[in-house]
Simulated assay, not measured.
Amino acid sequence: MENTDACSCVHEIAKSFANLKEREADHDLAEIYQTSLMSALIDGVYEGSVRIAELLEHGDFGLGTFNDLDGELVAFDSEVHQLREDGSARVASMDQKTPFAVMTRFRPTICGELSTALHKRDVQDIIDKLVASPNLFCAFRIDGRFEHVETRTVPRQTEPYRPMLQAIERQPVFRFEETSGTLVGFRCPPYVQGINVAGFHVHYITDDRRGGGHVLDYRLLEGKLEVAKISKLRIDLPRTVSFQQATLHSDEMSQAIEAAEG
């Protein structure tokens, strides 16, 4: 049964944001840069040639992973952190490489305060209403206080690489209680499933930069939401043998991505 109180709250918050003036000039300039495809990652293509320093040439905000599937990547304010399989975080080296990442120059077109406690689904509904169209991309950032954030991080893989669904069978899950931190996320249209992750893809890092991971669930107590609508996508495909030989489409691909990304 639908929670009418939650729906009303989401509607009112989205309505208050709608009164804010959008900076459409920034919207027109925004672009997502992506290296490789999500379907390649699902198939076990865990080695790329793009260095973190090169990623930062394409944006100051993003997410992804590292070679060997060695933790989660989160980037904002031109800083890149590696969220590791033990739940910890560290600053990434400029020489580390990624097999899959998404970056943008984050210029939010809508900003506002979230002063009501909200679950993940509520926040996603608000963002959907703010973007208005399911056919556009958006990047979003939330700096706030959280009652809890549940994350996971896939352990580092070694060759011969297993497909991601096998790699995540024993992935560690962490629960960060009563923390302040930053959510970095993208919402992609349904038609890019396999190219990217359709729907919401979010990573979290605590304010003390000691922990985080790929977000499974959270409850926000209060925070600042910034949203950037994006209508341009640029993709650089790897030239590696593993990518050329990968199975990049199958009838089960969508289900595999949903299982891997939560």
Score class of each variant (00 low, 15 high):
M1C: 05
E2N: 11
T4S: 13
T4K: 15
I13E: 04
A18F: 10
N19M: 10
R23G: 10
D26C: 07
H27V: 06
D28Q: 12
A30V: 09
A30L: 04
E31Q: 11
I32A: 04
Y33N: 07
S39H: 03
A40S: 11
L41H: 08
L41W: 15
D43S: 12
D43Y: 06
D43L: 05
V45Y: 05
V45K: 01
V45N: 10
Y46F: 14
G48E: 02
V50G: 04
R51N: 09
A53H: 09
E54R: 09
E54V: 02
E54Y: 04
E54L: 07
L55H: 13
L55W: 14
H58C: 11
H58I: 00
D60R: 07
G64Q: 02
T65W: 08
F66P: 01
D68G: 00
L69F: 14
L69K: 06
E72R: 10
L73I: 04
V74G: 03
D77W: 03
H81Q: 07
Q82S: 15
Q82A: 14
A89H: 02
S93P: 00
M94K: 08
M94V: 06
D95F: 15
K97P: 01
T98F: 08
P99Q: 12
M103I: 01
R107V: 02
T109G: 04
G112T: 03
G112C: 05
E113R: 11
S115C: 07
K120I: 00
V123Y: 07
I127V: 13
K129A: 14
K129W: 03
L130C: 13
L130I: 15
L136Q: 13
L136M: 10
F137A: 11
C138V: 00
F140E: 05
R141I: 00
R141Q: 14
R141D: 01
I142L: 07
R145V: 10
V149T: 04
R152F: 15
P155M: 13
E159M: 11
E159G: 03
Q166D: 14
I168A: 05
Q171R: 14
F174R: 06
R175Q: 14
E177F: 13
E177H: 12
E178Y: 13
T179D: 04
G185W: 08
G185I: 06
C188T: 09
P189N: 01
P190F: 15
Y191T: 05
N196G: 13
N196Y: 05
V197S: 06
A198T: 00
F200N: 07
H201P: 00
H201Q: 10
H203T: 12
H203N: 10
D208M: 07
R209C: 09
G211V: 01
G212T: 04
H214P: 05
H214C: 09
V215R: 02
V215D: 00
D217Y: 09
R219E: 09
R219S: 07
E222A: 12
E222M: 05
G223P: 04
G223M: 01
V227D: 01
K229C: 07
S231R: 14
K232W: 01
L233G: 00
R234N: 12
P238T: 01
P238H: 03
V241P: 03
Q244S: 13
S250M: 00
E252R: 12
I257L: 09
E258Y: 09
E258I: 02
A259G: 02
